[in-house]
């Protein structure tokens, strides 16, 4: 039984198999991401009503919140893949982790910048050192650290081990970010959607938010596969299947 599962995992995680399957999946994810973005932006920018307190400025929520969610989601995905790579020595897991890092960093950066553009008109400051903002900034640094280790260490196995370890240790930051607004007095307000209670946002405003969140997830799915395919090609550049594939191009 176990050996069967193991064999199944090995087939599906073989770089050659992955390269082909991922190539077929990418267009679907990309098309879904594009369609949901257009739909979500239309509802968010033109249909959803203004907020009773923040007026039109709250529309930044439709990029800020999905980007912040993605920065956390991708970090967890990266750390899980890195640990799978470390423990079971599945090479594809390391590839997924290293392909995820720049995407996660981009989303963390977007969350910080759009948050600051939202903070200025509403709070009165572009930046404050409260627990939520600081822990999100540390998340960006963790992504940078992972990417730096990946590119600095020449031996791929050592690079995967070192950066994977950093990714796993950094996971402690994820619950800190999420609960920072409850554990400490922060300028950042509490959770609107991701709480056990009913979301404290009007349905007409919630729907575009969820659409954008789904759009960003599909965007990540498409882009991580694109990046992982490139990475697989590069890592297997001396293997026969890559040589045969490139000869055909």
């Amino acid at each position: 039984m176990f050996s069967k599962i193991w064999k199944w995992i090995q087939t599906f995680s073989s770089p050659k198999y992955f390269y082909g399957t991922a190539g077929k999946l990418i267009p679907w994810f990309a098309a879904g991401a594009l369609a949901l973005t257009v739909w979500g932006l239309y509802l968010g920018l033109f249909v959803a009503p203004p907020d009773y307190q923040q007026g039109e400025s709250y529309r930044i929520i439709y990029v800020h919140v999905p980007a912040a969610w993605m920065s956390l989601f991708i970090y967890v995905a990266m750390a899980v893949s890195a640990s799978v790579g470390l423990i079971w020595q599945i090479r594809l897991a390391d590839v997924i982790a290293s392909a995820s890092a720049p995407i996660g960093a981009a989303f963390a950066f977007i969350a910080l910048v759009t948050g600051s553009l939202w903070g200025k008109p509403m709070w009165g400051a572009y930046w404050v050192w409260d627990a939520r903002l600081t822990s999100e900034l540390i998340l960006l640094f963790l992504y940078f650290g992972y990417m730096a280790l990946q590119s600095a260490i020449e031996d791929q196995r050592t690079a995967d081990k070192a950066s994977g370890l950093l990714a796993i240790v950094g996971v402690v930051n994820v619950p800190i970010i999420h609960y920072s607004v409850e554990w400490w007095n922060t300028l950042h307000q509490g959770a609107t959607v991701t709480k056990f209670d009913k979301p404290s946002i009007d349905t007409s405003m919630l729907i575009p938010l969820l659409l954008m969140a789904l759009a960003f997830k599909l965007f990540y799915a498409a882009l991580v596969l694109v990046r992982a395919r490139n990475e697989v090609l590069y890592r297997d550049r001396n293997r026969r299947w890559v040589r045969e594939l490139i000869q055909k191009l």
């Binding site: 307190q53 923040q54 709070w123 300028l187 307000q189 404290s200 009007d202 007409s204």
Partner: peptide, 18 residues
């Protein structure tokens, strides 16, 4: 020396708030 506004986590249209 500095005053920052803290808003809550509620988002709703003005009519609903009214």
């Amino acid at each position: 020396e500095e005053v920052l506004a803290k808003h809550d986590e509620n988002y709703m249209p003005p009519e609903v708030a009214d």
